[in-house]
């Protein structure tokens, strides 16, 4: 089904980010409170700060109807100290859950509201890259124990989304191959492992010899005695029966 991936796409994460709040300075007046909308906005007065969802700020910005007040973390001095902290500290620093998306959008659509937007853009990308390298280091140290659950402090949604498929699918293999999580291991072969072939008596003890016949009996007995090969052909009884119940309920 197109448009339906098994996991969130980055554009969808971006969409979620657009509901974050941001402060704007409107250049217009609109005092009338919202009508029956999903959210209430305003009132808007020229040069009076008001908090709105990010998607609304972008619409107004594109129409030249507001200035966006950059969030305090999106400043060169803050980001500079953040980069050095992020580099020296093993853990991830606390950042807004959608910092990459918000910074990217502001650098695209509201660069005249940012001092040195290109410098900011690069600094945010540096922060992300340092964190990305930490993420890789963390992933390298993963092993089967991670299938018991892992805490990922201060990771943000886009970062989760970038590693999601790789990380979860890898852990699926760890779960599959892990000797810890496997069902109790019976050492049938290990006692003979130097020859790398199997000993058969132990298997006989496990199952007994009569199982073969029992299963054949159920599969084929009826069919040897009946000749109506076609009669039951479309009898797919389980499903039909159940669906019939459903239909006439």
């Amino acid at each position: 089904m197109k448009g339906v991936r098994e996991a969130l796409e980055h554009q969808e994460v971006h969409f979620l980010a657009e509901d974050e709040k941001v402060v704007i300075l409107p250049t217009f007046a609109l005092t009338q409170r919202a009508l029956p909308a999903f959210n209430t906005f305003g009132p808007f007065r020229p040069q009076i700060q008001v908090t709105v969802p990010f998607w609304l700020a972008l619409i107004l910005k594109k129409q030249g109807r507001c200035l966006i007040v950059p969030p305090r973390w999106l400043q060169i001095s803050s980001l500079d100290s953040l980069v050095s902290l992020e580099r020296t500290d093993d853990i991830f620093q606390t950042l807004p859950f959608h910092y990459v998306e918000i910074a990217t959008d502001l650098c695209k659509y509201a660069r005249d509201d940012l001092p040195e937007w290109d410098h900011l853009f690069d600094l945010v990308e540096t922060v992300r890259s340092v964190r990305h390298n930490k993420m890789q280091a963390g992933l390298r140290s993963l092993d089967a124990r991670a299938t018991k659950g892992v805490k990922l402090s201060n990771i943000t949604l886009l970062e989760v989304n970038i590693m999601r498929a790789f990380m979860t699918n890898s852990l699926e293999f760890y779960r599959l191959l892990s000797t810890q999580t496997a069902v109790a291991v019976v050492g049938i072969a290990s006692s003979l492992s130097h020859t790398r072939s199997l000993h058969l008596h132990s298997v006989t003890q496990r199952h007994g010899p009569s199982i073969v016949k029992v299963s054949f009996e159920t599969f084929f007995q009826t069919r040897c005695n009946t000749t109506d090969t076609k009669v039951n052909k479309y009898r797919r009884r389980y499903l039909r029966r159940d669906l019939r119940v459903r239909r006439y309920q």
Partner: peptide
């Protein structure tokens, strides 16, 4: 096979 060595 339930071969522990191979598993490891």
């Amino acid at each position: 096979l339930r071969d522990e060595e191979l598993h490891e």
